[in-house]
Deep mutational scan, measured.
Amino acid sequence: GIPATNLSRVAGLEKQLAIELKVKQGAENMIQTYSNGSTKDRKLLLTAQQMLQDSKTKIDIIRMQLRRALQ
């Protein structure tokens, strides 16, 4: 079985993952909103794209940590 310490770690990672998935969803929504907007929305679009990139990276890292914890 999986050690108890790993189980609480997994629960924490799953919570983090859920949050990051919401951030990713929000960033994707912002990108959709701003991509057909005016030029003043360009900065917001770039910010949203950066957020999305960061979020995807975090999600990958969390998933990797989850896999390790579940081994």
Rank of each mutant, 00 (worst) to 15 (best):
K40V: 10
K40S: 10
S38H: 08
A18P: 00
T47Q: 15
Q25Y: 06
I61V: 06
L70F: 05
V10E: 01
S8A: 13
M51I: 11
D41P: 02
D41S: 04
K15M: 10
I31S: 01
Q71V: 08
Y34T: 02
S38K: 09
T33H: 12
L21P: 00
V10H: 02
Q71Y: 06
L44T: 03
M30W: 05
A4P: 08
A11D: 08
Q53W: 05
Q71C: 14
K24I: 07
K22S: 06
E28V: 07
R68E: 12
G12T: 14
G37I: 04
Q32P: 01
T33V: 12
D54K: 11
Y34H: 05
D54Y: 05
K43W: 07
S55I: 07
T47E: 14
Q50T: 06
L7A: 14
L21F: 04
L21E: 04
T39P: 07
L7E: 13
M51C: 06
M64L: 11
A18C: 14
K43L: 12
R42T: 11
Q50I: 08
A11C: 15
A4E: 13
L21H: 02
G1I: 11
L17C: 07
V10N: 02
L21T: 03
G37F: 02
K24A: 08
K15H: 07
Q50C: 12
I19G: 04
L70C: 10
K15I: 08
A18M: 10
N6H: 13
M51V: 07
D54H: 06
M30T: 03
I19M: 12
L21A: 02
D60L: 14
T39D: 11
Y34G: 02
G1L: 08
G12H: 15
T47K: 14
N6Y: 03
Q53H: 10
T5P: 13
T57V: 10
G1S: 11
A48S: 02
V10M: 04
I59C: 02
Q65V: 03
N36Y: 07
P3V: 07
L45D: 01
R68Y: 11
R42A: 14
I31T: 01
A18S: 06
T5W: 10
N6M: 08
S38W: 04
K15A: 10
D60T: 13
M64W: 10
Q53C: 10
L70N: 04
K40R: 07
E14G: 04
L17E: 00
A69Y: 08
R42M: 13
T5C: 15
K40L: 09
A69C: 07
R67P: 01
K40G: 08
K56P: 00
L7Q: 08
A18H: 05
M30G: 01
N29T: 10
G26C: 15
D60F: 14
D60G: 11
Q25E: 12
L7S: 08
Q32M: 09
Q49F: 12
K40N: 08
L17K: 00
P3R: 04
T33F: 13
R42E: 15
G1A: 10
M51K: 04
